[in-house]
Amino acid sequence: MEETIGVTSAAQIPKQRGEALLDTAVRYAEERHWDVFPGTWLESAEGAEQCSCGDTACASPGAHPAREDWATQATGSATVARRLWQKQPTASILLPTGRTFDAIDVPETAGFLALARMERMELTLGPVTCTPDRRMQFFVLPGATAKVPDLVRKLGWPPAAIDLVTLGEGTYVAAPPTRFGASGAVQWACRPTAANRWLPDAEEIISPLAYACGREARR
């Protein structure tokens, strides 16, 4: 059963329950052709959950790469993905950026404001995640990291003045239903569907994102 948190009709967040990480990782590789790789996971220790990396002060418990060569471990093969999660069924699902997509990362409040504006503007959206640390990540075509700073400047914002980060080659995002410590799970604000298989270019959605982040900055 899925529950949704209504924000706008375009921004409903399904709470995914009871879905095996293995099945989900395989589906991302098989249906979306996304590279996937297993990250760390949560372990019970003295009545609490902590990251499998063993660092009690871990900044992203249960949701970061488990090995340094994660970029070479990432696979687009459903068969390999199944084998990887069979070894560690509770491993987080991480998606490398800069390959089939980049991601534009913004604060949650700005992200929902931008989603509402995008809906009114009838813009085409790709998948969008919402993380337990109150960030939203908008999937766009690769190459956004090179474009976004200049696009933001053209809209009248110094890039350093607003909380808008582009994730490209060498970075990654955590995919639903990966859990972040005690905070909850990554969820979809806009789910992957057949309609959003073709991602927008960063240029198509940067205006409402920069506007929303600019409003946040003024606060």
Rank of each mutant, 00 (worst) to 15 (best):
L209E: 13
T56K: 10
C213W: 12
A10G: 11
D201M: 10
A78D: 04
Q16E: 13
S60Q: 09
Q12E: 11
L22H: 07
L125M: 11
C58T: 10
A114V: 08
Y28L: 01
G143V: 06
E204I: 06
W70L: 00
A161L: 05
L123C: 02
P142L: 04
R67N: 06
P177K: 05
P96E: 05
P38F: 01
A11F: 08
E122C: 04
A217W: 00
P38W: 02
C130R: 12
G18V: 10
P159F: 05
T100W: 13
S60G: 03
T8G: 10
A103C: 03
A175F: 08
Q88R: 15
F138L: 00
H64N: 02
A48H: 14
K147E: 15
T124V: 12
A11E: 05
T79F: 07
P159E: 10
R17F: 03
E30Q: 14
R219T: 09
A212T: 09
D133K: 00
G62D: 00
E49C: 05
R17G: 12
E122L: 07
A59P: 10
I5E: 15
P200I: 11
G6M: 15
C51A: 05
R67G: 02
A74D: 06
S207P: 00
R17S: 14
C213S: 07
M1W: 09
E122G: 07
C53D: 13
T109E: 13
T124D: 12
L151R: 05
R32H: 04
G168V: 08
M1N: 14
R32E: 04
V186H: 02
Y172T: 00
G111T: 03
K87W: 08
Q88K: 12
S77N: 03
V36L: 12
Q88A: 13
T166W: 01
T90K: 13
A10R: 13
I206Q: 03
Q86N: 08
G54S: 10
W157L: 04
W188I: 08
C190M: 11
R82M: 11
D163V: 03
F101S: 14
E169N: 11
E46D: 15
T131L: 10
T40R: 02
A10Q: 09
S44I: 14
R99I: 00
T24H: 04
E30Y: 07
P38E: 01
S92G: 01
C53H: 09
G54M: 02
L42N: 13
W70Q: 00
A212D: 10
T4K: 11
G168F: 08
P61K: 05
A29Y: 05
I93L: 03
A48M: 15
R215I: 05
R67W: 11
S92I: 02
D69R: 04
R179K: 06
L123P: 07
V80P: 01
W41R: 09
A71E: 09
M121V: 02
G181L: 13
L141N: 14
G39S: 00
G214I: 12
S44D: 13
W34S: 06
A160Y: 12
D133N: 09
T90E: 14
G47R: 01
Q16V: 12
P65G: 05
P208E: 02
G156P: 14
T100G: 14
W70T: 02
D35Y: 11
G98H: 06
R32C: 05
G126A: 08
L113N: 15
A175R: 01
P149H: 07
G39D: 02
W188D: 03
S92Q: 01
T75Q: 06
P65H: 12
L22E: 14
G62Q: 05
L21S: 03
Q50W: 08
